[in-house]
Amino acid sequence: MAEDEMTQAENEISDAENVNEEAAAPVDETAHEIAHAHIPSDTTDVLGITLPFPIYTAVFVILAVLTVIEVVVGTGSSGAVIAIILAAIAFGKAYLVVSYYMHLRTDNRLFTYTLVFPLIVGILGILWLILVAPEAGGVE
């Protein structure tokens, strides 16, 4: 549920970003040099409404909201489903930071691979270590 919310928000943001990209089209030579940095504009368009702050602030608000949702979902209840939802939200937040704050959406694709490949290696490593770990922890 929370995840859906997130992806929805995300799509809107990416739409907004596309618009901004055109708005920030380079005009002179110096702008040419740095244009690949994709400087977002000072406003964010969400659902047709223009909000008076940049996309980064919008992402921050979403991150904060997701954190609140996480805490609400996570405290008190537990179980496999809850754990999966929480993990999904956490990865969603990480995705937002990585793609917007660390600019992976617009930067060199190679950087994405540089992050994703070790991530796969690391996650497989963690899963393996959990798999082979002994059931009970020795002498209590």
Partner: peptide
């Protein structure tokens, strides 16, 4: 330390990773 809830295989696995 296997006697205290540790796991020697953890080292072997990660070391050989």
């Amino acid at each position: 330390d296997a006697a205290n809830g540790g796991d020697v295989l953890l080292w072997q696995n990660v070391f050989w990773f």
